[in-house]
């Protein structure tokens, strides 16, 4: 029952503006780890086909918020989420909602590359297989090839498809994880500091990649690098001590932040 759409070529979405519809809408989100409150009253809109960057000092709750969006917090014992987060108008904390289906629609790339100890091919084919996306080997090959290609990895690994994914370099591993995520064709991709383990060249590749694939996905990225946020994102949200201090168009946040704390952080005065 694979829905048939076509991929939008990157060129066409160069300027997704303030008008794009909201994909993820968070209202009054509070997160508690046991007694400790990690997020307080967060309201945030994530717009379609945009890159939203989450910035803020360490421990301010960026990862926590990110993990709320695909309910990865469910696996943490003692973690409690209140408030409302919706994906395309659908409450994702609804008791009827299926977590597995949600995570198929909201993919995630982690801080440390975590390829499965399987071959490169099997890493990418993992999601499509689980979700029954390919009827035969030919279709699977097609999905794997396209995903690797879009992750900019196909050329490098074309003759190493059967080698273990863990044998690639760090940057290649992270792109493999991105390929693995986009192979499922999620609507939203969450990235938690995807470049923090990479050197500048690998980082640049990933940033390019993010810019290319946003045509087809909505991306939320956590980063500690102001430059990276400025380079890849259209919108930026600044978190501080579990609060969302301010959110807005990236150029605006970086040039004329409204809040003192934001100003202090982006100019490197505290954090």
């Amino acid at each position: 029952m694979a829905a048939i759409e076509t991929l939008v070529p990157p060129a066409k979405v160069a300027a997704a503006g303030a008008g794009s519809p909201v994909t993820v809408e968070a209202r009054d989100v509070n997160v508690y780890y046991g007694e400790k409150q990690a997020l307080k009253q967060v309201d945030l809109d994530v717009r379609r086909h945009e890159v939203t960057a989450l910035i803020g000092p360490s421990g301010c709750g960026k990862s926590t918020f990110l993990r709320c969006i695909n309910r990865m917090n469910d696996v943490i014992e003692g973690c409690r989420v209140t408030g409302r987060i919706s994906l395309d108008g659908e409450d994702i904390y609804d008791s009827d909602l299926d977590v597995v289906a949600l995570r198929a629609r909201v993919g995630m790339v982690f801080q440390k590359p975590n390829p499965f100890p399987k071959s490169v091919y099997d890493n990418v084919a993992y999601g499509p297989r689980i979700h029954g996306m390919a009827a035969n080997r030919g279709e699977l090959d097609e999905i794997v090839a396209n995903s690797l290609e879009r992750a900019g990895l196909l050329k490098e690994v074309r003759d190493r498809l059967n080698d273990p994914g863990t044998g690639l370099s760090g940057g290649q591993q992270q792109r493999l994880c991105i390929a693995r995520a986009i192979a499922v064709n999620p609507e939203v991709i969450l990235m938690d500091e995807p470049c923090s383990a990479l050197d500048p060249i690998a980082t640049a590749r990933i940033e390019e990649l993010i810019d290319e694939i946003r045509a087809n996905y909505t991306i939320v990225i956590v980063t500690h690098s102001m430059q990276q946020a400025a380079r890849v994102s259209q919108r930026t949200a600044f978190f501080h001590l579990g609060e969302l201090v301010e959110a807005g168009d990236t150029p605006e946040i970086f040039t004329s932040p409204r809040d003192r704390r934001t100003h202090g952080y982006i100019t490197g005065r505290f954090g």
Binding site: M1, A2, A3, I4, E5, T6, L7, D98, A101, A104, R105, Y121, G127, P128, H131, G132, M133, A134, R137, E139, D141, E142, I143, V144, A145, N146, L148, E149, L154, R158, D159, L161, N162, V184, N185, N216
Partner: peptide
């Protein structure tokens, strides 16, 4: 699988049918 060719393809979504 030795040679994967990239062809334009239909966008396949996960099968999340009930």
């Amino acid at each position: 699988m030795t040679d994967l060719a990239v062809r334009p393809m239909a966008l396949r979504r996960p099968d999340l049918s009930a």
